[in-house]
């Protein structure tokens, strides 16, 4: 079983966003970066599948600057076998990112290529699916349950008010959602072992793409609300306000 996981370095989800100079991206000063949480499900799935198969290789691929090496090391510490850093600037256009990743993955002999369903910075939900389309592979996106056996892959995706059951033959691309597993913490031994694992750096350059970020702003502050009252008697007042003032019931 040969499995690739694509991993993105993103600001920690608790980061307080400050718009940077230029007004198109965030101010990264003092921001802590972490592996994209959805990608951690993919990393866990890759490690668990290899453990179950008893043999194979797991590879983590990341696009980014030198700092992304630390993110790759986190995956290596969790148990991924080796890393590849595609060194270059990202793009607001997910298709450009997908093209670079697909070029690296193409011909790699992977049975499975895993992604998180989206990155928590740009919220695109796009790159994994696009890589599958470019490579002509089946794509099971946003799966919260995953099963690989006998050359096939099955998954479940939450849809509005239901669950879609998906099936395809390997090789395939899968993007993972919360619920698919619980990512392990790297062990301390794993962290020490990670620095000895291979990490290849390959320079890449991305195309211009068709999406141009023209601005980034903070959402308007909500107007301060009001306390309707204290205790159960306030419930009647609230119900009236929701009907007559807010007009939502």
């Amino acid at each position: 079983m040969k499995i690739a996981v694509c991993l993105k370095r993103v600001p920690d989800t608790t980061t307080k966003i400050v718009v940077g100079a230029g007004g198109k991206s965030i101010d990264e000063a003092g921001v802590k970066f972490v592996p994209n949480p959805y990608d951690e499900y993919a990393v866990e799935a890759a490690i668990a599948l290899k453990e179950k198969a008893g043999a194979g290789e797991t590879v983590v691929v990341s696009l980014g600057g030198d700092a992304a090496q630390e993110t790759i090391r986190t995956a290596l510490a969790m148990g991924i076998d080796r890393g590849v850093l595609l060194k270059g600037d990202g793009s607001a256009d997910g298709l450009e990112v997908a093209r670079v990743l697909a070029a690296e993955l193409n011909g790699g002999g992977y049975d499975l290529i895993l992604f998180g369903k989206m990155a928590v910075d740009d919220y695109h939900h796009a790159v994994g699916v696009m890589v599958g389309e470019i490579l002509g592979l089946p794509v099971l996106s946003s799966v919260s349950a995953l099963r690989v056996e006998g050359g096939t892959v099955g998954g479940e995706r939450e849809i509005e008010g239901g669950v879609e059951v998906l099936a395809a033959a390997l090789p395939a691309v899968v993007t993972t959602d919360k619920g698919v597993n619980t990512p392990r913490l790297p062990s301390l031994k794993g962290i020490m072992a990670a620095k000895k694992k291979p990490l290849e750096v390959k320079p890449v350059s991305l195309g211009a793409g068709t999406m141009v970020v023209t601005g980034l702003s903070l959402p308007p502050e909500r107007q301060a609300g009001r306390i309707v009252g204290e205790g159960p008697d306030a419930a009647a007042v609230l119900a009236q306000l929701l009907r007559t003032e807010a007009k939502v019931i």
């Binding site: 306390i227 309707v228 009252g229 205790g231 119900a239 009236q240 306000l241 019931i249």
Partner: peptide, 26 residues
């Protein structure tokens, strides 16, 4: 409460059943 338009400070085990009753009535 900083983001809420309307807030009730109280024991939810008392407030919620009352709210359910009031909404049903309305």
């Amino acid at each position: 409460f900083k983001v809420a338009d309307y807030g009730i400070v109280g024991d939810l085990f008392e407030v919620v059943p009352r709210l359910t009753a009031e909404v049903t009535k309305l």
